[in-house]
């Protein structure tokens, strides 16, 4: 009888443990801003519907966004961005698949701000490139907010800038992201 109870307890424990392992953090409305201005002209845009998932058990992290989801203040810039630079018709999506390399330092059950390092593959404009970035994960209750600022080079993603606008558009683009994650049921 005792043995049976222990067996049941073990199997229950493993079921719960299995569920705990499968707990993801996610949002579909994360924000990514970019700034490609040089001081000559402001070139900024925001995408408010970034889908992203973190697996706290492994540190795996993923982002996915639609290029047409970027909002500019200027219609002409938005058109050029989609038609000439990103060719959003041909490459509608951009994704990042990577890992938080120091996930063991983040305690998702304890409030606080944790510095994180992320490494992985960014795909946009049909080109995949390994990138690294640092950021922060802020835990407050069930709210988990990740922020990061990093830069990418347009030439790394084969995005061609005509010489005529070369002084207005920076080759090094500043990216900043802010995502409010919630545990997925």
């Amino acid at each position: 009888m005792n043995k049976k109870i222990i067996l049941v307890a073990i199997s229950l424990f493993s079921v719960f443990f299995g569920i705990a392992q499968k707990k993801y953090l996610s949002t579909k409305t994360g924000q990514i801003n970019f700034d490609a201005g040089t001081g000559v002209e402001e070139i900024k845009a925001v995408n408010k519907s970034v889908t992203t998932v973190i697996d706290p058990a492994t540190g795996k992290i993923e982002f996915s966004l639609l290029i047409k989801g970027f909002e500019f203040k200027n219609a002409l810039m938005q058109d050029h961005f989609n038609e000439n630079y990103m060719e959003s018709e041909k490459y509608p999506k951009s994704t990042f698949k990577g890992t938080i390399t120091n996930i063991d330092k983040v305690n998702f059950t304890q409030n606080g701000t944790y510095p994180v390092s992320v490494k992985g593959s960014l795909e946009m404009h049909g080109v995949k490139k390994e990138i690294e970035a640092v950021g922060k994960v802020k835990v407050s209750g069930t709210d988990i907010i990740a922020t990061s600022d990093f830069s990418i080079l347009l030439e790394d993603f084969e995005i061609q800038v005509p010489k005529l606008v070369g002084d207005k558009l920076a080759n090094k683009v500043k990216i900043s992201l802010k995502c409010n994650y919630k545990p997925l049921n």
Binding site: S26, V53, D55, E62, S64, L66, K97
Partner: peptide, 21 residues
Amino acid sequence: TGCEGFEEKKPDEEMSLIEEA
């Protein structure tokens, strides 16, 4: 701005974390 999740998966294609979740 677009749709997601309708593409057919290739048989050898790995499932992404977003799809897994």
